[in-house]
Design a protein around this nucleic acid. Structure first.
Lengths: 135, 135
DNA sequence: TCATTTGTAACTATAATGGTTACAAAAGGA
DNA sequence: TCCTTTTGTAACCATTATAGTTACAAATGA
């Protein structure tokens, strides 16, 4: 199971998208999530590096860096999630056993297919698809 | 990212499938994985409860409970993984905010679609598909 | 009866997450 | 130029899950 970083980041981006006119702060966003501003800023920092949002000291968040229609959930996922692999594979198997020798490669190939399908699903959903639920 | 329990369980089942003739022990399987027998038995216990393998004290593992063609990776996944959700959703959001009020339901619906697709992929692969790679 | 193996409890170390405090640095605006 | 606000980040902490390990009672085949 992936962490909630994707979910929280979508939350952050949604708040920004819905208040495009104003500039808002990590403090404000944190109050919508019911968490603290530092956690929000930690994610904001990564969203900024991925060029999904614009920020400025003193002013706070000044908006999305792209249109909501051009931000996919895969963009967000890649921006904030370090551990992108869907399934873990145990290493250090016994290479003298026919299973031990080949299991890693076999599973890797198989999991890659599933992972690719998942990522395609994420790339097909945009922030705009999500924010329209909130209006 | 899911734990390696699925991967290790597939390893266990593969060893059993490839040695269908003989009965083998957790000790033997552990040597192929390069881990210890108790960890193998912990997973074996769940595979047995899910009716995927047959075991007996004194004899050890006496074989698969079904044909390898009739054991899907989804069966294995459900047998050993408690945390089946693909993505975590943060709870306790601020219901006074339009985003906070609806984010949980929106994400749940969206993630469910992706999860279902993933599970369908897992159900389409059988143990037989995997073991044929090892011969 | 006895030797073997499962099944399970209990414990440990490690790593990731989510939460939190604190503060330097940036930068807008008076 | 100075002040105030906010980001960006470091440094913690508590909690949880994983993977590994030891130990042993109970089951059971021979």
């Amino acid at each position: 199971m992936y962490s909630s970083k994707l979910s929280v980041s979508i939350h952050i981006l949604s708040v920004i998208a819905l208040m495009e006119a104003q500039t808002i702060t990590s403090e404000y966003i944190a109050s919508s999530i019911n968490t603290n501003p530092a956690l929000v800023r930690r994610l904001m920092s990564r969203l900024k590096k991925a060029e999904l949002i614009k920020t400025s000291t003193k002013l706070g968040v000044t908006g999305l860096a792209r249109k909501a229609e051009d931000i996919s959930l895969l963009d967000v996922f890649f921006a904030v999630e370090d551990q992108r692999d869907l399934f873990s594979i145990h290493g250090n198997t016994n290479l003298n056993c026919p299973v031990g020798a080949k299991i890693e490669g076999t599973l890797k190939h198989l999991y890659d297919n599933i992972q690719t399908a998942t990522e395609e699903k994420l790339s097909a959903i945009t922030l705009a698809d999500i924010t329209k639920e909130f209006i």
